[in-house]
């Protein structure tokens, strides 16, 4: 195992986060009841996704600046796991919405926009697979990656806030981002973000090494 410490850290943090999420005192809030604990699973997926997709975009820029194939590999693998987190975020969101909003998909701006983001990033993978030449694929998909990230920010963080939305944190509704996260939730929530993100990075590191072996075998 290469560089063990952060993987041990990841497992330790996640163990703490899962135990904390299930066992620590949670505020008693109407409508949400015990489901407030989803905060440490559903919301952390989206935070993790944003971190991973930001890294993906940074590697796309670094690829464009240097032309180093390694950065292209990082970029696509960060995007892959970012997409995985987004899918998990959407599914967990639908499960939660079924309970809290009455139906799994209510066409809420936040839901629709995150689905659009997911499609944009799926198109990134399709685009990559449709180009055979390594350099061309790297360059075109890096540029698309930057554009996709530029679309992600308004779609997830600006547009849902400008209309009425059921989702917390948008349009002044009584969901729970509208409640200030309090310190007893934060001591689990923030570590959980770090933990899930590290798990994502771990997956990415495995996939990157897999790709390197693949490339070595092809050469």
């Amino acid at each position: 195992m290469e560089k063990k410490w952060w993987k041990i850290l990841c497992v330790a943090i996640l163990t703490y986060a899962i135990l904390g999420a299930l066992l620590f005192d949670a505020p008693r809030l109407n409508i949400l009841n015990e489901t407030i604990r989803n905060l440490h699973f559903h919301v952390t997926m989206w935070f993790g996704m944003i971190i991973l997709l930001t890294a993906s975009m940074v590697y796309a820029i670094r690829y464009l600046r240097t032309g180093n194939q390694r950065f292209d590999t990082y970029s696509v693998e960060f995007a892959n796991v970012g997409i995985l987190f987004a899918v998990l975020g959407l599914i967990t969101g639908a499960v939660w919405a079924n309970y809290a909003w009455g139906e799994p998909w209510s066409g809420d701006p936040k839901q629709n926009n995150s689905a659009i983001c997911l499609l944009i990033y799926c198109a990134y993978l399709v685009l990559r697979n449709s180009i055979n030449d390594d350099q061309q694929r790297g360059r075109i998909s890096a540029i698309y990656n930057i554009l996709a990230f530029a679309a992600l920010i308004p779609l997830l963080f600006i547009l849902p806030r400008m209309t009425d939305s059921l989702h917390p944190g948008n349009g002044g509704n009584p969901g729970f981002n509208a409640y200030d996260l309090d310190s007893r939730l934060r001591i689990v929530f923030y570590p959980a973000i770090i933990g899930w993100t590290l798990l994502g990075v771990w997956m990415i590191s495995l996939r990157v090494r897999m790709r390197k072996i693949q490339q070595a075998l092809e050469d």
Binding site: P27, R28, N33, E34, A178, Y179, D180, D182, R184, L185
Partner: peptide, 29 residues
């Protein structure tokens, strides 16, 4: 941090809101 409703200590004590207290008290959690 704009337009937020704060969670207070009272929210932790508010027994009017149903939680899985039985599950916790009998240890099935």
């Amino acid at each position: 941090s704009q337009d937020k409703i704060e969670i207070t200590a009272e929210d932790y004590e508010n027994n009017a809101v149903e939680m899985a207290d039985t599950m916790r008290s009998n240890g099935k959690i």
